[in-house]
């Protein structure tokens, strides 16, 4: 793959991840009360904290998604999206380990039918892509700087 094709490939990956996060954010922002219930189901945070996060996280996801698509605040968005994914995967594993049978709430209730294994696979693919995008961005910044 030549350099230009490689650039284009990673650009498309970033846009796809951005679109995914916008979608996930919009679905949750449309029904924050339901998302608060999903956070509550993890039994990690007290309700007063979870319900506030339910109003905040969807907008953070939307902004990060837009940043990835339009390449504004791009590096910051990559770090935040990666952090969100790591927190989410940690919470999911922790819930599973405690025997909680819950909907992740990640794409509203659209993802209710996804099994735990599929969630993990999807998350790991996303995390890998984000890490690679981050390394690539840092390398490009070094070259530019």
């Amino acid at each position: 793959m030549n350099r230009e094709a490689l650039n284009r490939f990673w650009r498309i990956v970033a846009i796809l991840i951005g679109a995914l996060f916008i979608y996930a954010g919009v679905v949750k922002a449309l029904d924050p009360v339901r998302f608060a219930g999903d956070i509550e189901n993890y039994h990690i945070l007290p309700w007063p904290v979870g319900v506030r996060l339910a109003f905040y996280l969807p907008w953070l996801e939307i902004l990060c998604g837009l940043a990835l698509i339009f390449r504004r605040l791009y590096s910051g968005a990559l770090v935040l999206v990666l952090a969100l994914m790591l927190v989410f995967i940690g919470a999911t594993i922790s819930a599973k380990a405690r025997g909680l049978d819950i909907s992740c709430g990640c794409f509203g209730h659209v993802s209710d039918q996804l099994s735990f294994a599929w969630h993990l696979v999807l998350d790991l693919v996303l995390i890998t892509a984000l890490v690679l995008l981050l390394f690539r961005q840092r390398a490009l910044s070094r070259v530019a700087g």
Partner: peptide
């Protein structure tokens, strides 16, 4: 990177 992250974290507060 950190500055951008904080900016995004702050910006998300407004609509929230």
């Amino acid at each position: 990177m950190l500055r951008q992250s904080f900016l995004l974290l702050a910006l998300a507060c407004l609509p929230a």
